[in-house]
Design a protein around this nucleic acid. Structure first.
Length: 576
RNA sequence: UGGGGAAUAGUGUAACGGCAGCACAACUGACUCUGGAUCAGUUAGUCUAGGUUCGAAUCCUAGUUCCCCAGCCA
């Protein structure tokens, strides 16, 4: 043992990996699957993917990719009453977007219906399955409870012939929905509820998105899932920890099928890992749907939602999500991840890749009194200080400008070093200016500043070496483009919105300020020239993504995340 | 009260009988034409009680707490 550990350490830090990868490494070493690694992501097409699904996806895809294996996208379309083509398309799109390339390995559980049916008939013939006429309500009652054993259905001991006949007639459509089911004959007193004669088929006269009306009986997930994996030769069947209880049933089904079979069908190894919660959001499909249906958000792609579509619209990148998931890791503990971790990886990437532009969210007019009227000039600005290859651009400057309202305070506190009366600051890439006069309206609100500039500081440096404590972003009044800017914040005010006092609705924790729409913002021309989906940084403000709602000449930006803001932190502390 | 899982800094994760490490967060400081970025540093942890052992996060026993399971959903 000690020698083995030493050997592992010699391989370097890579051996420190999660328990699933360790199992794969071990299987490859022992030749359990002949060196093959086949994984799959098996969504049901009845909704949109969210970041929780992305974890499973990234584990499935990542492991196949790392070990030179095969990754399948397989739709678990066994319940036509809730599944739709729209979701199939959306899910496939999101999977690709995340970077999980399934190549030609796109499959549908419904393509295996014939095979599953054949296996079901086989089980009936072996006396391991039976048709039950009990109603759904009766089935439930007969199942017993967590602590009390169930009791056997009076139909449990029908003859093979009768079972075969009834199952065939179920398939032929002779019986109405809900009138009969096919059940596995296991043990009504089993301590694991899943093994108390689980339902294998139910009657559903419904049109299937892929199979039309070919079928009117549909397999239950537990019956179908293991067979799907078996047919595809999945070696490592990775899933949520919730299915740990079901593994004995999947094993039972495969063993039952293999009983007396000359060539046994493939028996995948299921391994379970934990899903996670994210702070300040909810992940359950039911709750997400409710917010969409009650129009508390704009749709499944609302940038505040943890759906992949929402994150994408917000400007979150696939790389950031992947880096985040890699850091989250794989374990069997259902933890709560702080959303700040996602933000961290998001900023790390966006800082590297986003072109900088200047945009003023809440404009305050500034007139440079000693700058010639009618004059304008172009000033060179760096596109991305983190990436020299991004080059420079020309930003127009003129006598009348806008700066951020937050960047001026008439009576500044000690730690505020932006503009105030008599103080000199730098306009980024432009000039030093000094505030000479404050103009107010009748209500006493500051409406305009009169400043002077120092022509010798053109470009932003003083030849005499004097320093200023602040650099402000600005937009030329003449050249700036009007924009709408949507400031998104966390959707809920509580870290765990679902953690509620008795009888309270999670919507009570909705953040009323999760979206603030700003109009009349001013952005420099370079920002307006972007196309929807493109990401930028408004200097000193944050990262933004151009929204599809944008119109020519009237861009709409979504705030992806803010820049770290030390001043905001100081302010908060002073207030507290 | 049946069965199945899980507990390591604030959060997540590593250490597989031999120095409890990493990331985020928080806090200091340096630097800065983004109060950004960057850099340096600080704080902080093995659920509890016994046992085995030269040595325990790791093995054993008992307990505590949390999660999942009673759809003809997946």
């Amino acid at each position: 043992m000690a020698a083995q550990n030493d050997a592992k350490r010699d391989e370097g830090p890579e051996w420190r990996t999660d328990f699933i990868r360790q199992a794969v490494i071990e299987d490859n070493k022992t030749g359990r699957w002949g060196g093959k690694v086949i994984t799959r992501f098996p969504p049901e097409p009845n909704g949109y993917l969210h970041i929780g699904h992305a974890k499973a996806l990234w584990i499935d895809y990542g492991i196949a990719a790392e070990f030179g294996g095969e990754f399948h996208l397989r739709f678990d379309d066994t319940n036509p009453t809730v599944e739709e083509q729209e979701f199939i398309d959306a899910i496939a799109e999101d999977v690709r977007w995340l970077g999980c390339d399934f190549g030609s390995h796109l499959y549908f559980a419904s393509d295996y219906f014939e095979k599953m049916h054949e296996y079901a008939v086989d089980l009936i013939q072996k006396g391991l399955a039976y048709v039950d006429d009990l109603s759904a309500e009766q089935v439930r009652q007969y199942r017993g409870s967590l602590t009390a054993p169930g009791k056997e259905s009076p139909y449990r001991n029908r003859s093979r012939e009768e079972n075969l006949d009834l199952f065939e007639r179920m398939r032929q459509g002779e019986f109405p929905d809900g009138s009969r089911v096919l059940r596995a004959k296991i043990d009504m007193a089993h301590p694991n509820m899943n093994l108390r004669d689980p339902v294998m088929y139910r009657i559903l006269h419904a049109v299937h998105p892929h199979r039309g009306d070919t079928w009117c009986i549909y397999p239950m997930y537990d019956w179908a899932h293991g067979i799907e994996d078996s047919i595809e030769g999945v070696t490592h069947s990775l899933c949520d920890i919730d299915y740990e209880n079901h593994r004995p049933l999947y094993d039972w089904f495969i063993d039952a099928i293999n009983q007396g079979r000359a060539k046994p069908i493939h028996h995948p190894q299921q391994l379970e890992f934990a899903r996670f919660n994210l702070t300040y959001t909810v992940m359950s499909k039911r709750r997400l749907r409710r917010m969409v249906e009650e129009k508390l958000v704009s749709g499944w792609d609302d940038p505040r939602l943890p759906t992949l579509r929402g994150l994408r619209r917000r400007g979150v990148t696939p790389t950031a999500i992947r880096d985040f998931l890699a850091q989250v890791g794989v374990s069997k503990y259902v933890g709560t991840i702080e959303v700040e971790l996602l933000d961290h990886f998001l900023r790390a990437e966006l800082n590297r890749t986003s072109p900088r532009v200047m945009g003023v969210l809440r404009p305050l007019k500034v007139v440079i009194t000693n700058y010639p009227e009618g004059k304008s000039e172009m000033l060179e600005a760096v596109n991305n200080p983190e990436d020299a290859a991004a080059g420079t651009r020309q930003a127009p400057f003129s006598r009348e400008l806008y700066i951020e309202q937050d960047d001026f305070l008439e009576n500044p506190p000690k730690k505020f070093f932006r503009l105030s009366p008599g103080r000199e600051v730098r306009l980024r890439y432009a000039y030093f200016i000094t505030c000479q006069e404050v103009i107010k309206d009748a209500a006493g609100r500051v409406t305009e500043l009169r400043c002077t500039y120092d022509p010798a500081t053109r470009g932003g440096d003083a030849p005499d070496g004097r320093k200023v404590k602040a650099t402000l972003h600005w937009v030329s009044a003449r050249d700036g483009v009007d924009a709408e800017i949507r400031l998104y914040d966390r959707l809920f005010t509580k870290e765990a919105p679902e953690d509620l006092p008795e009888g309270q609705d999670f919507l009570a924790n909705l953040n009323p300020k999760s979206l603030e729409v700003l109009t009349g913002c001013k952005v420099e021309p370079a920002a307006a020239a972007k196309t929807p989906g493109q990401r930028i940084q408004f200097e000193r403000i944050g990262y933004f993504c151009l929204d599809p709602d944008s119109q020519p000449g009237r861009p709409v930006f979504n705030r992806t995340t803010t820049l770290k803001d030390t001043w905001a932190k100081i302010q908060q502390r002073e207030e507290a």
